Amino acid sequence: MRKFHVDALYALLLAIALLTAWLRIAHADDTALSTSGRLDLTRMANLSGGLQSRPASSALFQWGGSLATGPALGWPGGLIEFSIEGVRSDGNLPARTGAIQMPSNAWAPNFLRVYQLTYHQQLGAAAVRVGIMDITQYFEVSDLSSLLQNSSFGLMPTLTANLNAPTFPNPGLGAMAEYRFNPDSLARAGVWQGNPPALAGALHQGALWIGEVERDWTAPNQSSPQSDLKLGVWHDSESDPMIGPTTSGGYLVGETRWATGTQQWGAFILAGTSPGQVNLVTQFVAAGFIVTGPFVSRPQDQFSLGVSRVNLHAPAPETVLEAVYSWQLTPALALQPDVQRFWHPGGTNPSAVVAGLRVHLAF
Rank of each mutant, 00 (worst) to 15 (best):
E255V: 08
N311R: 13
R257C: 02
G254Q: 08
R257A: 03
S239W: 07
L312G: 00
T247P: 07
Q283F: 09
N311K: 12
Q302Y: 02
P241D: 02
G276Y: 12
T260Q: 12
R298E: 00
L280S: 12
G261T: 10
W234H: 07
V307G: 03
D236G: 12
G261D: 08
T282N: 14
V296K: 13
R257I: 02
W265Y: 07
R298C: 00
P315E: 06
T273P: 07
E255Y: 04
I269L: 11
M242R: 15
H235S: 12
G261F: 08
F303T: 09
G293A: 07
Q264P: 01
V285W: 11
E255T: 12
P299R: 01
H313S: 12
T282Q: 15
F284H: 14
R309A: 03
T282K: 15
V233N: 05
T292I: 06
P294W: 00
D236R: 14
L252G: 04
S297N: 12
G250L: 13
Q302D: 02
G288Y: 04
A287S: 11
L270Q: 07
G276K: 13
D301A: 01
P245Y: 09
R309T: 14
S237N: 11
P245T: 10
R257N: 07
A271P: 03
F268T: 02
P317V: 03
G306C: 02
W258Q: 06
S248G: 13
S239V: 10
N279L: 08
G232P: 07
Q302C: 01
D301H: 01
Q283M: 08
A271G: 10
F303P: 00
D301K: 01
T247G: 10
G261L: 09
V278K: 14
V281I: 11
Q263I: 01
